[in-house]
Design a protein around this nucleic acid. Structure first.
Lengths: 247, 247
DNA sequence: CGAGTGGTTGACCACAATCAAGACCCGTGG
DNA sequence: CCACGGGTCTTGATTGTGGTCAACCACTCG
């Protein structure tokens, strides 16, 4: 059992890879089909023996680096992002406990994004050759990998709709409900949570300026949709937020 | 051998599934590893026996429909798009000869986008159960599928950077060079081509208005970067266009 | 030849970006 | 314990890119 209560902003999560909670963990999302088929549980350990721990703000990997391992987040959170030549960047995803990172780079052998920790974060390191070897042996693991890849495509498709066609208000509403839903899936409260990312990060993800994020959140608060205590967000009217998303 | 010269705007492509040209075809991009491993060539036919033909503007499938088949484009082109509740839509991809469509929906069993023909289009229909069954048997087919899924993720990641951070000028420059590159990969000219999509479609893909597309293209022409004869585009200065993309 | 679609250009406007300043919170050290 | 400093968040004023509305043009097809 590991427990993280480092900085005030760290999301307080406890992950125990031997309990039910681990169904939410990336490792276990890979591993679930294994146990379902009564495969040797030690196969799990073959996938992800190494643990790794990085501090808030630290780089997990850089764009263009050769792909040595994939990662699954045990606790904490990671942002992945791309940049233009002159330094503007676009966050392509926020990843929390239970998410795998780097899957999409499996076949090119090079990280296509930068990955940086939003808070102190525990990871499982998954050597790519181990994973591929094991995938050859286990049909259920293969289909789980395919499923994760497909879901990532669907997520990015929705993100392009948001970035291409939605107003700042719609983007923020979508963002808040999306976060709420993901926390909910992992067994946390869906109406009250701590954001691990800054306003700047939110803007960089939603394709709007930091100031627009602030203004819109304040407006949501004025209209009684949310309670906005800096990074502590309480959703007061999910229904009306949902109509605001326009999707 | 099939030849399409229907309307003036149809891209003049000839696809023969028994020739070298077919390496560019979606079917063959799936099939290539099969022949590489000397598997029975008739397996190919098991994947995609049925042909289908749809007219310009016709719907191939709608969002939310149950996934019956995937498609690979033999000739012509298809746009896939999502929409907001109030009808704004975002094109997530233009697909030309050689591209597979619907792969990402394999594991959910429902089409996540609408797909519509930009011109008269020939397709191969790939029943999902056949494909999955065959993938179980053939490791090389599996890795090809994984590769296609990964590439789609990388493509969408770049699209989010474009939509989230780039100016209209940068978007158009990226778009033109992207098209050029894809035609080039398929053995067509990379500096002169017919667009199969309208200005409106381009805007709906790039997250800008139709009028902005026009204005920007005219400016590119005034600056000697391209020759803009409605849908016939000639790239005159790829180098400077590339610096404009900022990526 | 005329109708209709798609493309272009112009005028005006709005949403959000930018620039700027100040508030708040936190960790740190005296 | 308080004072300080830096990062983050918030709010205000101004600007600008690109959206919207509208008219016109060009090409195609019936």
């Amino acid at each position: 059992m590991i427990t993280l209560t480092h900085a005030k902003y760290d999301t307080p999560t406890e992950i125990d890879c031997n309990t039910v909670a681990c169904r939410n963990c990336g490792i276990c999302r890979l591993g679930t089909p294994l146990t379902a088929t009564h495969a040797d549980p030690r196969l799990l350990e073959r996938i992800a023996k190494n643990r790794r721990q990085i501090k808030r703000g630290e780089l997990l990997y850089g764009m263009g680096e050769p792909l040595k391992a994939l990662y699954a987040i045990r606790s904490g959170s990671i942002k992945t992002y791309l940049s233009t030549m002159d330094g503007r960047s676009q966050i392509t995803g926020f990843h929390i406990a239970g998410d795998p990172i780097g899957l999409a780079d499996l076949t090119t052998g090079t990280y296509s994004t930068e990955a940086r920790a939003l808070e102190n974060t525990h990871l499982c390191e998954i050597p790519v050759d181990h994973l591929q070897q094991l995938a050859e042996e286990l049909p259920d693991l293969r289909s789980q990998l395919t499923h994760l890849l497909c879901n990532e495509i669907l997520r990015l498709q929705k993100l392009t709709l948001l970035l291409g066609k939605k107003t700042a208000e719609e983007r923020l509403a979508s963002f808040l409900l999306g976060i709420a839903q993901r926390y909910h899936q992992r067994g946390f409260s869906s109406h009250e949570f701590n954001l691990s990312m800054s306003r700047n990060d939110i803007g960089t993800y939603l394709g709007i300026a930091e100031e627009t994020v602030c203004r819109t959140l304040t407006r949501f608060q004025d209209e009684g949709l949310i309670d906005n205590q800096r990074r502590l967000i309480r959703i007061l009217n999910a229904e009306r937020l949902h109509t605001l998303t326009q999707s």
